[in-house]
Write a protein that binds this DNA or RNA. Sequence first.
RNA 1: GCGCCCGUAGCUCAGUGGACAGAGCGUUGGCCUCCGGAGCCAAAGGCCGCAGGUUCAAAUCCUGCCGGGCGUACCA
Length: 546
Amino acid sequence: MRLEDLVRASVAEAVTARGWTVPAEIPVDRAARPEHGDLTTRVAFHLSREFGAPPAEIAARLASELAAHPPFAKVEPVGGFVNFTLRPEAVHDVLRKILADGEAYGRGDEGRGKAVQVEFVSSNPTGPLTIGHLRQAALGDVVAELYSRLGWRSIREYYLNDEGRQMDLLARSLWARYRQACGDDQPVPADGYHGEYLAALGEELARAWGDRYPGWDESTRAVFREEAVARVMAMIHEDLDAIGVRFDVWTREGDLHRRGLVQEALGELQRRGAVYEKDGALWLASTKHGLSRDPVLIRSDGTPTYTMVDIAYHLEKRERGFDLVIDVQGADHVDEQQQVLLALKILGFPGGFLRYCLHQFVTVKGEEGIQRMSTRAGRFLRLKDLVVEVGRDVARYFMVRRKPQSHLVFDLALARNTSMENPVYYVQYAHTRIASLFREAEREGIAPPDLRTVDLSPLTDPCELALIKELDRFPDVVRIAAHEFAPHLLCEHVESVSGLFHPYYARVRVLGQGPVTAARLTLLAAVRHVLAEGLTILGVSAPEEM
RNA sequence: GCGCCCGUAGCUCAGUGGACAGAGCGUUGGCCUCCGGAGCCAAAGGCCGCAGGUUCAAAUCCUGCCGGGCGUACCA
């Protein structure tokens, strides 16, 4: 049994024995300080509210009730807390459980029979992906993986917004670059896309097509738009390949129009009286529901806005039968998110159907100081180039190491650093060292320990017990990281495991220690397993050799 | 102006209302013939932005300020 559950069950038993009612939640925490033992419960505070007795008194009674429970070496009331010190055997049982569970350790079944869609990146095809998109790509991919660990069927989806004004601007910018390559002095529009990538494409097109498109007209626009989108999508695919993110479904905006979903959604909103007409446009009455502005849904020229299509898209998502939809978006979309959430509420969607995973932007700390990315201004670090430079593992790990809603400063110098100062290598190196140790054991003819017969009693070193107790947290970390869209908790966990392992490894010899060797190898097999699982969830490799 | 996010060690950041606030980097001082040194140990370093409030208990919840980011489009 997991350690917290062990304490929880014992406390429930003691509470019942005392004749009190067991609270719905029995809070059990890891002890903050060594003198508080291993685990602690504040349940006495809760019982105190209910029964009037002082917390310290309740804690004392519970402690005396629990003192004789076999898993505990010591049960001590301090103030209103009850602190538990575990017997080593109870800790060793966790180790057995981890190894016996194997693949299943850290997985859950809360999502059995349910499907979640994670929509992320969804970048307009106006340029290659940048380090800014990387955060979203890494985040979305990990969130999808976390949910699948909890038993959900998870779908990774990219919404391809390849219609509208921005695409025209892109086409016009590319055409200007093409004309420049033909020798014309044609400027890129001020509000167009100024990146070098279009200049390179323009030159290619000039070579291929010669002077075929001297002037800007409707048919030229169509040609350049199609060409631009195709070329840019090829770049985006290269970038996604570079970081190893694969999408299951690509949804194009055009499909939503063709299937009449926009009309359907609009009609539904109108029927519910949520839409009004003003200045020839149709607006969503949002301020009535406390939002700060009303967005246009249908422009006066009859075309739907991004917001309108976005609402229709969520109608489509529901029709596809998802139980949960997670949209990963940058901080510039908050207003949009509030509008969509409101629209879905008006349309009678169940609350909690759509959850936004919102993230702040990335700045890069490099030679030129701190800079923000801008695709439009052509000021960006292309994702693929970054991966070539620091590697996929580092690129991805750095992006999910921080809480999504915090600003992230990408430290290029630290990313380039290949020593253990770089947290990615620190964790990977822990895994590698253990792998190496097992190879060495094999060379020396030491068989891997048999879980059924191995004697774990030699594992008495505080470091060894601390390691097992940390490994015991892994399933909770996975669950919480998923629910709170917080992959950084997983980084923290694998770093913490590694941080316990490295000093231990430096101090303690494993091989050639008689019966101790088998016990220590068992421990390290579990450490290796959890590190490998954690890294895999994060989309980072767990190398056997470095 | 209004909305959302952030403010914690020199830097980058953790911290589901609980006990004396943590990690990595950086700084300083030690150690290292041994299974992978791409190390190990230790120290210094803090009015948790400010002020109120709720609570037995606040970095955490509420209110008001201050500072930074993003948004506030018939762009996406």
